[in-house]
Computed example of a mutant assay.
Amino acid sequence: MSSSPHVGDLSGKDINDIGEILTKTYKSKNSKTISVDKATLDSIVNRMSIGDYVVVPDDEYVYIGEIVTDYRYDKSKATGDGYPHQRGIKWINNPILRNDLTLDLRSSLKSPRTSAELTHRYKDIQIALGEVTEDKVEEKEFITVEYPIRPDVKVKIEIPKDLKKSESERVGEFIKTIFFDEAE
């Protein structure tokens, strides 16, 4: 029995490093598959933070948990019997029927990717967990910050007044991915 190649520990690797490793390891995979895998692994390794929620659909049920550890690599799971790239999760409540979720959250879970950013569905996750009712969701206070990127151009970003450091870092990483022209 030949073992298939696998990607080792990705601690300290950024999204570009992860993409290069995947391309070298899985030469026969197409670029679209590599791109999806790269985004998924980058989410697990770099973008998730302790305290974030995860929403895991499983047929007609959905499991919701809270991330409780930093990224870790479990070599024993790299044999095809599991997932070696991990975050520790504390599962919250019992499984929830998919049909009991808000329509917006259900729609977000139809993504064909194995990982998707659901920060914009935080209210819906709170509702699913019974933390708030739909009509009593606390509205966050936001501020608009401006940053000059050229002498005649300022970027405006609306952020919550209680922005956390880990959230700020994730926004920074997201902004690094937005560009339309390689020329300086």
Results as ranks from 00 to 15, higher is better:
residue 52 D to I: 08
residue 103 L to F: 05
residue 82 G to D: 06
residue 54 V to W: 03
residue 93 N to T: 12
residue 83 Y to P: 05
residue 180 F to H: 14
residue 24 K to F: 00
residue 143 I to Y: 10
residue 29 K to N: 09
residue 39 A to Q: 05
residue 153 V to T: 02
residue 94 N to T: 08
residue 155 V to S: 08
residue 72 R to P: 01
residue 148 P to A: 09
residue 16 N to M: 14
residue 160 P to E: 07
residue 154 K to V: 13
residue 55 V to A: 07
residue 166 S to L: 08
residue 1 M to L: 06
residue 56 V to A: 15
residue 184 E to T: 13
residue 92 I to F: 00
residue 149 I to R: 04
residue 161 K to Y: 05
residue 15 I to S: 14
residue 20 E to I: 02
residue 96 I to S: 02
residue 143 I to L: 14
residue 33 T to R: 10
residue 142 F to A: 04
residue 168 S to Y: 12
residue 179 F to V: 09
residue 75 K to P: 06
residue 124 D to R: 09
residue 117 E to M: 08
residue 95 P to T: 09
residue 51 G to M: 15
residue 77 K to A: 15
residue 82 G to R: 04
residue 54 V to N: 04
residue 109 L to F: 02
residue 38 K to R: 13
residue 127 I to D: 03
residue 64 I to T: 05
residue 51 G to C: 00
residue 120 H to F: 08
residue 183 A to T: 05
residue 94 N to K: 08
residue 63 Y to A: 01
residue 150 R to G: 00
residue 129 L to M: 08
residue 158 E to S: 11
residue 41 L to E: 01
residue 61 Y to C: 09
residue 37 D to P: 01
residue 105 L to A: 05
residue 163 L to W: 03
residue 158 E to P: 01
residue 33 T to D: 00
residue 145 V to H: 14
residue 59 D to S: 10
residue 48 M to Q: 07
residue 71 Y to F: 08
residue 71 Y to R: 04
residue 46 N to M: 05
residue 59 D to L: 10
residue 33 T to F: 03
residue 183 A to F: 07
residue 129 L to R: 12
residue 180 F to L: 15
residue 99 N to A: 12
residue 50 I to Q: 13
residue 149 I to T: 15
residue 29 K to A: 15
residue 16 N to T: 07
residue 38 K to C: 11
residue 2 S to E: 10
residue 86 Q to T: 11
residue 32 K to H: 11
residue 131 E to H: 12
residue 164 K to E: 12
residue 151 P to K: 15
residue 82 G to C: 03
residue 127 I to N: 04
residue 86 Q to G: 07
residue 8 G to Y: 09
residue 62 V to G: 01
residue 159 I to Q: 01
residue 76 S to V: 09
residue 64 I to A: 03
residue 169 E to S: 09
residue 92 I to G: 02
residue 111 S to Q: 05
residue 72 R to N: 01
residue 74 D to S: 10
residue 123 K to G: 14
residue 64 I to C: 02
residue 18 I to C: 08
residue 107 S to K: 14
residue 24 K to C: 03
residue 59 D to H: 15
residue 67 I to S: 05
residue 136 K to E: 14
residue 68 V to W: 00
residue 134 E to N: 04
residue 21 I to K: 05
residue 96 I to M: 04
residue 80 G to R: 14
residue 17 D to H: 13
residue 45 V to W: 01
residue 151 P to M: 03
residue 22 L to F: 06
residue 154 K to L: 15
residue 18 I to E: 01
residue 142 F to G: 07
residue 108 S to Y: 00
residue 39 A to R: 12
residue 10 L to W: 06
residue 39 A to L: 09
residue 135 D to M: 11
residue 87 R to F: 02
residue 83 Y to F: 14
residue 97 L to P: 03
residue 53 Y to G: 03
residue 139 E to H: 10
residue 45 V to I: 11
residue 102 T to Y: 03
residue 53 Y to Q: 00
residue 180 F to N: 10
residue 71 Y to D: 03
residue 168 S to W: 11
residue 108 S to E: 04
residue 56 V to K: 15
residue 125 I to Q: 02
residue 162 D to G: 02
residue 177 T to S: 13
residue 102 T to V: 05
residue 5 P to Y: 07
residue 112 P to G: 08
residue 145 V to N: 06
residue 180 F to T: 06
residue 22 L to T: 06
residue 42 D to I: 02
residue 14 D to G: 09
residue 184 E to N: 13
residue 176 K to F: 09
residue 115 S to T: 00
residue 35 S to N: 06
residue 118 L to A: 12
residue 87 R to K: 11
residue 66 E to N: 10
residue 101 L to N: 02
residue 67 I to G: 04
